[in-house]
Design a protein around this nucleic acid. Structure first.
Lengths: 145, 145
DNA sequence: CAAAAATAGATTGCACACAACTTAATTTTG
DNA sequence: CAAAATTAAGTTGTGTGCAATCTATTTTTG
């Protein structure tokens, strides 16, 4: 007779706690780069993009964030000198976000973060693979928006 | 040669996205109970507690939230008639949070939520068990606070 | 082609989430 | 026992995150 409403039985609560703990583990490393956790995700997206940058729309699709979150976040990143905003010439509605020199340079300082964090998780390679598989499966069955 | 900074390779990003998707899946169900997702977690904690209720501190330990989050959140729940606050008599620093009649009654309306959501995940029982195991392992290796 | 619909981004309002700080009460300690 | 340290909640300030709305620009359609 399972108690379905017990907090310990909620998958969502495990994800909720773990997500917060992850962000807290990143925080000290990111602080030295003057980045918040969501800003770090934006940087990851931009570091792997072309030099023209990404539109706010495509950044939003990649990170699953809407303009209500991204607009002020990108404004802060611009203030901190990490990104530039350019109106697209083909479509005046579109704003292209691209890295500044300083934003590009920051990549070198971030390069070790993923492995450092993976070390702290204590997971084996095979557990990591298995967890990735299960999370992807769940991501694919949970519709976005 | 793995690209460690690629967004697709980040475990944290999978958890980040999935956590948000979960909250969005709960949202419509919780809206009919007039609860937000964090408020739902508070209700789960209170539904399984004794009738004396829980202190803000123990609620915070259970949910991994500090008073900066809980104080205003509990105030809103009190405004909505779900919980009461009582100063403890043994220790005047402690505030006990307990359910109102209406808060207790809400449990009946929430009883089907976990199974409804589990259905939407599309996970098998064995996948659920495996995922729970891996998440717990990760939770136990990631220190809190 | 002009009106209607759709799209991109920004803005507003509300609810977390957390660091840092404050206040009041209790414990510890010299 | 009194001063110092600790503890529990609350407050303040900043940064998300999202729904709803607004504005400007395109695209579609009659």
């Amino acid at each position: 007779m399972a108690n379905h409403l017990a907090l310990e039985n909620q998958l969502c609560f495990r994800l909720y706690r773990l997500n917060k703990r992850m962000a807290k583990m990143y925080a000290p490393l990111l602080k030295s780069l003057n980045l918040t956790y969501p800003q770090y995700l934006v940087m990851l997206a931009l570091w792997q993009s072309t030099s023209e940058g990404l539109s706010v729309k495509s950044l939003g699709e990649t990170l699953e964030l809407d303009s209500g979150t991204l607009s002020p976040l990108l404004k802060r990143m611009q203030t901190n000198g990490l990104v530039q905003r350019t109106r697209s010439e083909e479509d005046e509605r579109t704003v292209l976000i691209s890295l500044t020199e300083s934003g590009i340079a920051l990549k070198a300082q971030a390069i070790d973060i993923p492995l450092t964090l993976f070390g702290k998780t204590g997971l084996s390679e095979s557990e990591f693979t298995q967890l990735t598989y299960l999370l992807d499966k769940l991501i694919s069955t949970t519709a976005n928006t």
